[in-house]
């Protein structure tokens, strides 16, 4: 490591095993979230993604009770919730927000129960923080293969359905007219979304995972109006924010107040938010107008 970096990067950063795992996992997850998130923002489903993330807390905390990795809890719960949302969405478009909200409330109630059971069963309070705000540094290296598999599936679904997804995002009627099975595409997309939200939840915590999913994507869509390029930029922003977050959290062990270290998730979320803010100021107005006109021409 070059000497001039040492004030920035604390010694031992790259040789530390948890840090290595965090960098690998964070990088992979940020790429997947960026790709899936681009479509989430394009489809105007940011709130669905956010609700899914909150609902996932019930799954993550249940996994703790069962003694398995929260990742499996998130995936199971989010897939289930996505299924319910699809079902509600098809049957009754009106009042969807309200129905989502009620399901969200019930899921958070369950999360309260499971987290309470975690706390009383293990008499530690780690589960609450772990599920809600993530703890990427305690992620065991054995989870890396699973994370890789889920990532490949999520990204694969989006890449396979890339063109139908764009078309259904613009207009479901147009897509039907072209012979696309809109419902199938919708379900595939929701599976990818559920996986991406679960992966983000493992990285920065369930109730913060929205940031990694939609933050970089919203920023990227401000910068460019091409879907493919936006997905690449979103992945890049996500990876940058995650790695910088890990680095800053590692450094923060020596900051105020001594000894604790600041949460990784706080840094990641703040960096993503700052990026979004800058893009809002820099590209406001112009990019929106361009995107509108290109969306109208796209088919």
């Amino acid at each position: 490591m070059p000497g001039f970096l040492s004030p920035l990067i604390e010694p031992g950063f790259f040789s530390n095993l948890p840090v290595q795992t965090a960098l690998v996992v964070g990088g992979v997850v940020a790429v997947v979230s960026g790709i899936v998130g681009t479509f989430t923002v394009m489809r105007g489903q940011s709130f669905a993604g956010h609700s899914l993330a909150d609902i996932g807390t019930a799954g993550g905390s249940a996994a703790f009770v069962l003694g398995i990795s929260p990742l499996f809890g998130y995936v199971a719960m989010n897939l289930m919730a996505a299924g319910v949302m699809e079902w509600i969405g098809i049957r009754r478009p009106r009042g969807r927000d309200l129905a989502t909200g009620i399901v969200l409330g019930a899921a958070l109630g369950l999360a309260a129960l499971f987290l309470y059971l975690d706390t009383t069963a293990s008499s530690t309070t780690g589960a609450t923080v772990n599920v809600l705000f993530g703890s990427i540094f305690t992620l065991p290296a054995s989870m890396v293969p699973f994370i890789a598999i889920f990532s490949v599936v999520a990204a694969g679904i989006v890449l396979v359905m890339y063109r139908p997804l764009i078309l259904t995002s613009i207009s479901a009627d147009l897509a039907i007219a072209q012979g696309i099975r809109v419902r199938l595409v919708g379900i595939g997309y929701l599976v990818a979304l559920a996986l991406a939200v679960s992966l983000s939840a493992v990285t920065i915590g369930a109730i913060l995972s929205t940031a990694l999913l939609i933050g970089p994507a919203a920023t990227a869509l401000r910068i460019t109006n091409r879907t493919g390029r936006a997905a690449v930029i979103a992945a890049g922003i996500g990876v940058t924010a995650t790695w910088l977050g890990v680095l800053l959290a590692y450094d923060s062990y020596y900051w105020f107040p001594n000894g604790g270290g600041w949460p990784v998730s706080f840094f990641v979320v703040t960096l993503i938010f700052l990026g979004y803010l800058v893009s809002q100021l820099r590209f406001s107005g112009r990019a929106v107008a361009q995107r509108r006109s290109s969306a109208a021409q796209a088919p």
Partner: peptide, 13 residues
């Protein structure tokens, strides 16, 4: 919705 969702998350963080 994007801005508000991000603000929510920032507050939680």
């Amino acid at each position: 919705d994007v801005a508000t969702a991000l603000v929510i998350v920032l507050m939680l963080g």
